[in-house]
Nucleic acid binder design. Structure first.
Length: 269
DNA sequence: TCCTTATGTACAA
DNA sequence: TGTACCTAAGGAC
């Protein structure tokens, strides 16, 4: 379930289980075997997230760079680690814990300067202290691209994915097809602040919830619903269902090869 | 057992 | 814009 909040949570969880220990590092699947052999038995000294990128720092001065892509999954458990399945790309194991990584787009050993280059091509991350929302707005306000596409562009904002994109636009009643240069500074400030709050809550709870208490189905007198991605949302994957606020139909469309969801009544052009 | 789908990205044309 | 890549779950047969 990889949007930025997931990755920041993983940075915390990897640290809690392995920081300042020297785990055994293996690649049961085989695609990371040589690098794992270099790292095994060296101390994990840092974990860090920027957008959807995760970095595990080792004493040797190198980093494991992980990107989950669409399918990547991470599983933690207590020692002793079970026999790994043959899809485990990376396993860390120490005397108390193990963690398995499956299906990542990226799992590579990189240097400090390669890591710097990755930070350099990513936009500000609402979950990082060093984030500058004005830098994001400079790009947004100069662009004729839709705000829906801009929010997904990791060079503009790092960490927002398809769920937060759809939900934050709904919460601010912004039509996803409006262009970046139509977004006012006040609108952008509100979007940014909301993303920071929502994503921080996402890190805490390890899921995406965006529905305000006064709009829950219970509060609105509607039957409760089930979202199979595990959070309470207004529009994401709710195509053809009634909008929680106006009761109109939620719409869906293809936008840059991703599914967009919005309420055409609440989010007027 | 097969097919579809998914919270992502990179690269070719 | 299209396609390739990585995995697992759920639904149709």
């Amino acid at each position: 379930m990889p949007e930025g909040h997931t990755i920041h949570r993983l940075a915390q969880d990897y640290a809690a289980a392995f920081l300042r220990t020297a785990p055994q590092v293996t690649s049961p699947q085989g695609k990371f075997t040589d690098s794992a052999a270099l790292l095994t038995g060296t101390e994990l000294t840092a974990t860090e997230a920027h957008g959807k990128h995760l970095f595990l720092g080792f004493r040797a001065g190198e980093w494991i760079h992980i990107h989950l892509g669409l399918f990547g999954k991470v599983t933690f458990g207590p020692a002793p680690a079970p026999r790994p399945t043959d899809t485990v790309r990376l396993r860390l194991a120490n005397s108390t814990s193990y963690v398995d990584l499956r299906g990542p787009t990226t799992c590579a050993l990189i240097t400090d300067s390669e890591k710097g280059a990755i930070h350099g091509r990513l936009g500000p991350d609402p979950l990082r202290e060093d984030a500058d929302p004005k830098a994001a707005y400079r790009r947004v306000s100069r662009s004729r691209t839709t705000i829906a596409a801009l929010l997904m562009d990791q060079k503009v904002v790092a960490g927002v994915g398809n769920v937060y994109r759809a939900e934050v636009l709904f919460r601010h009643r912004i039509d996803p097809y409006r262009t970046g240069n139509s977004v006012t500074p006040a609108e952008w400030d509100a979007i940014w602040q909301d993303l920071a709050d929502l994503m921080r809550e996402g890190v805490r709870n390890n899921r995406i919830d965006t529905v305000r208490p006064e709009h829950t189905p219970e509060a609105m007198g509607r039957p409760p619903r089930v979202d199979d991605h595990g959070g309470e949302v207004y529009v994401y994957r709710r195509a053809n269902l009634p909008c929680l606020i106006c009761g109109g139909e939620i719409r869906t469309a293809d936008l840059a090869a991703r599914n967009l969801f919005w309420c055409p009544t609440c989010q007027k052009p």
